[in-house]
Amino acid sequence: MNVFSFSKTTLKNLFSAPATRPYPQQPRQYPERTRGHVEIDIEHCVFCGLCSRKCPADAIRVDRAAGTWSIERFGCIQCSYCVDSCPKKCLSMKQTYTAPAPEKSVDTYQKKPAAPAKEPEAAPKGENEHA
Protein backbone atom coordinates (compact mmCIF):
# COMPACT_ATOMS: atom_id res chain seq x y z
CA MET A 1 0.00 0.00 0.00
CA ASN A 2 1.27 3.44 -0.76
CA VAL A 3 -0.07 6.91 -0.26
CA PHE A 4 0.68 9.23 -3.15
CA SER A 5 0.09 6.71 -5.94
CA PHE A 6 -1.98 9.09 -8.05
CA SER A 7 0.32 12.14 -7.86
CA LYS A 8 2.34 11.12 -10.92
CA THR A 9 -0.82 11.04 -13.06
CA THR A 10 -1.94 14.35 -11.58
CA LEU A 11 1.36 16.05 -12.41
CA LYS A 12 1.33 14.60 -15.90
CA ASN A 13 -2.19 15.89 -16.47
CA LEU A 14 -1.17 19.35 -15.29
CA PHE A 15 1.40 19.70 -18.06
CA SER A 16 -0.22 17.81 -20.93
CA ALA A 17 -2.80 18.84 -23.50
CA PRO A 18 -6.48 18.38 -22.57
CA ALA A 19 -8.13 15.07 -23.41
CA THR A 20 -11.27 16.86 -24.55
CA ARG A 21 -11.99 19.01 -27.57
CA PRO A 22 -13.39 22.59 -27.49
CA TYR A 23 -16.62 21.39 -29.03
CA PRO A 24 -18.50 24.19 -30.79
CA GLN A 25 -15.27 25.80 -32.08
CA GLN A 26 -13.79 22.53 -33.25
CA PRO A 27 -16.49 20.28 -34.69
CA ARG A 28 -16.12 16.54 -34.51
CA GLN A 29 -14.62 14.63 -37.41
CA TYR A 30 -16.74 11.55 -37.92
CA PRO A 31 -15.10 8.30 -39.03
CA GLU A 32 -16.14 6.89 -42.37
CA ARG A 33 -18.42 4.20 -40.93
CA THR A 34 -20.42 6.38 -38.51
CA ARG A 35 -24.13 5.80 -38.82
CA GLY A 36 -25.64 9.26 -38.46
CA HIS A 37 -28.82 9.54 -40.49
CA VAL A 38 -30.46 7.93 -43.52
CA GLU A 39 -30.46 9.81 -46.79
CA ILE A 40 -32.55 8.90 -49.85
CA ASP A 41 -31.91 9.45 -53.53
CA ILE A 42 -35.61 9.82 -54.20
CA GLU A 43 -35.27 9.86 -58.00
CA HIS A 44 -34.12 6.25 -58.02
CA CYS A 45 -36.67 5.02 -55.49
CA VAL A 46 -39.29 2.62 -56.89
CA PHE A 47 -41.47 2.75 -53.73
CA CYS A 48 -41.34 -0.98 -53.18
CA GLY A 49 -41.79 -0.38 -49.44
CA LEU A 50 -39.22 -2.96 -48.39
CA CYS A 51 -37.42 -0.41 -46.16
CA SER A 52 -40.59 0.41 -44.25
CA ARG A 53 -41.39 -3.27 -43.72
CA LYS A 54 -37.86 -4.04 -42.53
CA CYS A 55 -37.52 -1.03 -40.22
CA PRO A 56 -37.42 -2.31 -36.61
CA ALA A 57 -38.64 1.05 -35.30
CA ASP A 58 -41.43 1.59 -37.87
CA ALA A 59 -39.92 4.99 -38.64
CA ILE A 60 -40.24 4.85 -42.44
CA ARG A 61 -43.49 5.36 -44.37
CA VAL A 62 -43.70 4.76 -48.09
CA ASP A 63 -46.68 5.96 -50.10
CA ARG A 64 -46.57 4.51 -53.57
CA ALA A 65 -49.67 6.38 -54.86
CA ALA A 66 -48.48 9.81 -53.75
CA GLY A 67 -44.84 9.04 -54.56
CA THR A 68 -43.56 10.04 -51.15
CA TRP A 69 -41.01 8.54 -48.82
CA SER A 70 -41.00 9.85 -45.27
CA ILE A 71 -38.97 9.14 -42.16
CA GLU A 72 -39.43 10.02 -38.53
CA ARG A 73 -35.97 11.36 -37.78
CA PHE A 74 -36.29 10.83 -34.03
CA GLY A 75 -37.84 7.39 -34.38
CA CYS A 76 -35.01 6.10 -36.56
CA ILE A 77 -32.49 4.01 -34.63
CA GLN A 78 -29.76 4.21 -37.31
CA CYS A 79 -29.39 0.45 -37.60
CA SER A 80 -28.92 0.81 -41.36
CA TYR A 81 -31.07 -2.27 -42.00
CA CYS A 82 -33.07 -0.35 -44.63
CA VAL A 83 -29.86 0.70 -46.38
CA ASP A 84 -28.74 -2.94 -46.58
CA SER A 85 -32.08 -4.22 -47.82
CA CYS A 86 -32.89 -1.52 -50.43
CA PRO A 87 -33.05 -3.31 -53.82
CA LYS A 88 -32.32 -0.12 -55.82
CA LYS A 89 -29.49 1.01 -53.48
CA CYS A 90 -31.01 4.48 -53.29
CA LEU A 91 -30.71 4.72 -49.51
CA SER A 92 -27.44 5.66 -47.87
CA MET A 93 -26.11 6.32 -44.38
CA LYS A 94 -24.58 9.75 -43.78
CA GLN A 95 -22.24 10.59 -40.94
CA THR A 96 -23.88 13.62 -39.36
CA TYR A 97 -26.51 13.12 -36.71
CA THR A 98 -29.97 14.67 -36.73
CA ALA A 99 -29.75 17.99 -34.90
CA PRO A 100 -31.58 18.18 -31.56
CA ALA A 101 -35.02 19.77 -31.80
CA PRO A 102 -37.79 20.70 -29.37
CA GLU A 103 -40.34 18.60 -31.25
CA LYS A 104 -40.36 15.34 -33.16
CA SER A 105 -40.64 15.79 -36.88
CA VAL A 106 -41.21 13.78 -40.04
CA ASP A 107 -39.14 14.42 -43.15
CA THR A 108 -41.02 13.74 -46.37
CA TYR A 109 -39.43 13.40 -49.78
CA GLN A 110 -41.58 13.74 -52.89
CA LYS A 111 -40.68 12.24 -56.23
CA LYS A 112 -41.48 14.61 -59.09
CA PRO A 113 -42.44 12.75 -62.28
CA ALA A 114 -41.20 15.42 -64.69
CA ALA A 115 -38.64 17.64 -62.93
CA PRO A 116 -35.61 15.65 -61.71
CA ALA A 117 -34.79 18.10 -58.88
CA LYS A 118 -35.18 16.76 -55.36
CA GLU A 119 -37.57 18.73 -53.24
CA PRO A 120 -37.47 17.99 -49.55
CA GLU A 121 -40.64 18.99 -47.84
CA ALA A 122 -40.57 18.76 -44.08
CA ALA A 123 -43.98 18.04 -42.67
CA PRO A 124 -45.14 19.47 -39.31
CA LYS A 125 -42.20 21.56 -38.10
CA GLY A 126 -40.27 22.40 -41.18
CA GLU A 127 -36.78 23.44 -40.15
CA ASN A 128 -35.08 20.10 -39.80
CA GLU A 129 -31.97 19.91 -41.89
CA HIS A 130 -31.12 16.72 -43.70
CA ALA A 131 -28.04 17.45 -45.70
Binding site: T9, N13, P31, R33, R35, C79
Partner: peptide, 29 residues
Protein backbone atom coordinates in the same frame (compact mmCIF):
# COMPACT_ATOMS: atom_id res chain seq x y z
CA UNK B 1 -13.33 12.00 -8.91
CA UNK B 2 -10.04 12.26 -10.82
CA UNK B 3 -9.63 8.49 -10.94
CA UNK B 4 -13.15 8.31 -12.36
CA UNK B 5 -12.14 10.77 -15.10
CA UNK B 6 -9.02 8.75 -15.90
CA UNK B 7 -11.00 5.51 -16.30
CA UNK B 8 -13.50 7.15 -18.58
CA UNK B 9 -10.77 8.84 -20.60
CA UNK B 10 -9.39 5.38 -21.41
CA UNK B 11 -12.89 4.08 -22.12
CA UNK B 12 -13.34 6.86 -24.65
CA UNK B 13 -10.58 5.29 -26.78
CA UNK B 14 -12.54 2.04 -26.91
CA UNK B 15 -15.70 3.89 -27.90
CA UNK B 16 -13.78 5.60 -30.70
CA UNK B 17 -12.49 2.23 -31.87
CA UNK B 18 -16.05 0.94 -31.91
CA UNK B 19 -17.16 3.88 -33.99
CA UNK B 20 -14.30 3.34 -36.46
CA UNK B 21 -15.07 -0.35 -36.85
CA UNK B 22 -18.86 -0.61 -36.55
CA UNK B 23 -20.23 2.89 -37.02
CA UNK B 24 -21.84 3.13 -33.61
CA UNK B 25 -20.38 4.12 -30.27
CA UNK B 26 -22.78 2.25 -28.02
CA UNK B 27 -25.21 0.31 -30.21
CA UNK B 28 -23.22 -1.38 -32.94
CA UNK B 29 -25.80 -3.18 -35.11
Amino acid sequence: ESLFMQSWRLREKILDMFEYSTGGRVIFS
